[in-house]
Design a protein around this nucleic acid. Structure first.
Length: 680
RNA sequence: GGCGAUGUAGCUCAGUUGGUGAGAGCGGGCGUUUCAUACGCGCUAGGUCAGUGGUUCGACUCCACUCAUCGCCA
């Protein structure tokens, strides 16, 4: 399995990359954002390398499921999809995905192309009229065989009932293309990624292909079959064609001659342009088969070149739970963008999930990535130099570097390696690795600042060593502003602005990827601004971490059993007896008590709980009890609470007390019972 | 059932064609600096590399089997 070398994309003058078109039967969620952001990252990377990129996304709007949804609402399909499609577009705009085209399958330009493709397939003799009978699942838009169905004739995926459907149908001679497909797979070892998915595809084809039913008469909401308006084109043939129709590839003029859409059409590879174009479809693993088997077969039949690559990514779970309609636990990206901003969410999605594998969308990890990587790592690096030291050293101008030492040399060497590694990883559709690699440079730069101590040089050597040190850090940040820009486009603009640099201006044929050290121009004014990734207010953190899934997603209602009570009148979750027995409650006798200095609430107690040594326990009861009131008293102690530091002192347990607005009362024991005995 | 994967430190994962004491990031612990967004830097994981049995001078890395998890099978 070969990975393209870092230079190959720059050579590929044209790069066509697509997301799946999204089915508009529901509102967009973080999964849609994920695949579209991934494609946007690739698109931005390729542009930086000087490729001419066409980035397509859009919506899939036909099919029986849509027809029924529209009917339920008493509106027609067009009105329904006109309402459902815009939120997708808005989401991708919010996520700062710079798509070049957003196609809807209900657009006339697409309908013409589908019909044109149909005619081509007909001309090649690969379409015939037959009769189809089978179990059709409306919810999955597909037929199932008898043995695939669940008991009671249910769709094995959606568990909805299927219908016995018998209808006249046009068929595509898919069976004829099995050997050609296998030959194609053989000669294109990177056709499907990741390779384990490719294995599945190959075996599927090796198992033999049946002809594919490609029209329906049982519903109307779709594209009419040319010259047989009773039939509607099968939704997958319809949907897949979007990749061509966005390029106007099959466009014909009034006289049937190719129209003027030739420029865009060049994004689709032909035999003559294989080395200078690259067409890649990014899809979810659930629709791989359609893209890796049916789609190349259609294209072969139409006399067209299959795409270069199909990249199947994985699914996201939500805080460890599979996202599903019935659980209503789809993570909506918009509140996250409100809380953190677009770029941090993009960063999280690209950094925390290995592209191609399934991943988990974890709110805790999101916050950790924001605070740790972005805030403490990158943001603080910029801040500590541009905001803090540079104004004092050079009144904010980029300094002129002097002779370098081994410290500078090794940082430069590392930056060059990181730059190469990062490019390799972006190329291989491994944004998580690219970012991992980039953070080597972030860390090294922070370490460099620590080692060189510019704040000390400010006093000891402001005219010689200091300019070199500051220049080196600033130049590292300039490199970072390029390396990170595919993932953090707007934050990198901000970063560059603070460094006194113009925005990155991509141009076809111009490779902007960092290679030469020292492009920062001494004397340029920097523009210290607000921190790139300000520390999250606690309220925002709490909002992100505060049981976001539980709140939005009650467990699926169970109609048969009575729902157990999950919370008590205090809003606390119900616990099992076993949970309770985990708490080691013991009787303790207070041996000593004294106030904690500088604290109005805390008392430091030495409590005998039957152990050789008394426990030191800090209790926030000083407002009610004076130290001398407590000595000799017996009270209830939580003995197995993890030790915790309060006001610099370790507390090895907790004293039970009840409190209300007026004060509190410790739980004293009135009989003379031996310290250390269990309470329960 | 058939086919294919995966199982490495608390968590997420790297570990090229078998060979110096098995790694990274995060979390935890300890220390330290003070320019900075209480941020940075340093040290710290003694992990039966799922298990068993093989091949080999030598295996996390090859083979067989077992267990667990997952994917594909129109």
């Amino acid at each position: 399995m070969s990975t393209p070398s870092p230079s190959s994309a720059a050579d590929a003058r044209r790069y066509y990359i697509t997301t799946p078109i999204y089915y508009v039967n529901d509102r967009p969620h973080v999964g849609h954002a994920y695949s579209t952001v991934a494609v946007d990252v690739m698109h931005r990377f390729q542009e930086l390398k000087g490729a001419r990129v066409h980035f397509l996304t859009g919506t899939d709007e036909h099919g029986q499921k849509i027809e029924r949804r529209a009917q339920e609402e008493g509106i027609d399909g067009q009105a329904f999809t006109d309402r459902m499609a815009p939120p997708f577009r808005q989401l991708f705009d919010t996520m700062n995905c710079g798509y070049d085209d957003f196609i809807r399958t209900t657009e006339p330009r697409h309908k013409r192309q589908v019909q044109a493709l149909w005619k081509r397939l007909e001309e090649s003799g690969d379409i015939y009229l037959g009769e189809y009978e089978g179990w059709y699942s409306v919810s999955s838009e597909t037929f199932f065989t008898e043995k695939e169905l669940l008991e009671g004739n249910l769709d094995p995926i959606t568990r909805k009932p299927v219908e016995r459907v018998r209808e006249k149908s046009y068929f595509f001679k898919l069976s004829k293309y099995g050997p050609k497909l296998l030959e194609w797979f053989e000669s294109h070892p990177d056709f499907v990624q990741p390779s384990t998915r490719f294995n599945e595809v190959k075996r599927f084809v090796e198992g033999g292909l049946h002809d594919l039913s490609i029209s329906r008469t049982s519903f109307r909401w779709g594209i009419g079959v040319p010259n047989d308006p009773q039939h509607v084109v099968y939704v997958w043939l319809d949907a897949l064609t979007n990749y061509l129709s966005a390029l106007g590839l099959l466009e014909t003029g009034p006289a049937g001659a190719p129209s003027g859409q030739t420029d865009l059409a060049h994004f689709w590879p032909t035999k003559g342009t294989l080395s200078t174009t690259r067409a890649v479809h990014v899809v979810g693993k659930d629709i791989l088969r359609f893209h890796a088997v049916y789609w190349p077969a259609f294209l072969m039949a139409a006399g067209l070149q299959p795409p270069h690559q199909i990249w199947a990514h994985g699914w996201l779970t939500a805080d460890g739970v599979k996202m599903s309609k019935s659980l209503k636990n789809f993570v909506s990206p918009l509140p996250l963008v409100d809380a953190l901003g677009t770029d941090p969410l993009r960063y999280y999605l690209m950094r925390d999930v290995a592209f191609g594998q399934d991943g988990d969308f974890s709110h805790a990890n999101l916050v950790a990535r924001y605070t740790g990587d972005l805030g403490n790592g990158l943001g603080n690096l910029l801040n500590r130099v541009v905001q803090s030291i540079l104004p004092k050293a050079t009144e904010g101008r980029i300094p002129t570097p002097g002779p370098s030492t081994s410290l500078e040399d090794s940082l430069v060497t590392l930056a060059q390696r990181v730059s190469q590694d990062t490019a390799t990883h972006y190329h291989a559709f491994a944004p998580h690795r690219a970012l991992e690699s980039i953070w080597e440079l972030v860390s090294a730069a922070n370490k460099y600042v620590d080692q060189t101590e510019p704040w000390a040089l400010l006093k000891s050597d402001p005219n010689h060593r200091l300019p070199t040190v500051l220049y080196t850090v600033l130049e590292s940040l300039r490199w970072l502003s390029v390396l990170l820009s595919p993932v953090l486009p707007s934050k990198c603009q901000d970063l560059r602005k603070q460094l006194g640099l113009p925005p990155l201006a991509v141009r076809q044929g111009l490779d902007l990827w960092p290679q030469a050290w020292g492009a920062l121009i001494p004397g340029t004014m920097t523009q210290p601004g607000t921190p790139l990734f300000p520390r999250l207010p606690e309220a925002v953190q709490d909002q992100l971490l505060g049981a976001p899934i539980a709140a939005q997603a009650p467990p699926p209602p169970d109609n048969h059993t009575k729902k157990p009570q999950t919370h008590n009148s205090n809003g606390k979750p119900m616990i099992e007896f076993d949970d309770f027995t985990k708490v080691d409650l013991r009787l303790g006798k207070v041996l000593q008590a004294e106030a904690v200095p500088k604290s109005t609430k805390l008392l430091k107690l030495q409590v005998d709980i039957g152990e050789p040594q008394p426990r030191q326990i800090l209790a926030g009861i000083r407002t009610t009890y004076a130290p001398e009131d407590l000595i000799g008293k017996k009270l209830v102690v939580v003995a197995n609470l993890k030790p915790r530091k309060l006001m610099g002192l370790e507390s090895q347990g907790m004293v039970l007390a009840a409190s209300d607005d007026d004060g509190l009362s410790a739980l004293f024991v009135d009989k003379d019972i031996t310290p250390g005995v269990s309470v329960g």
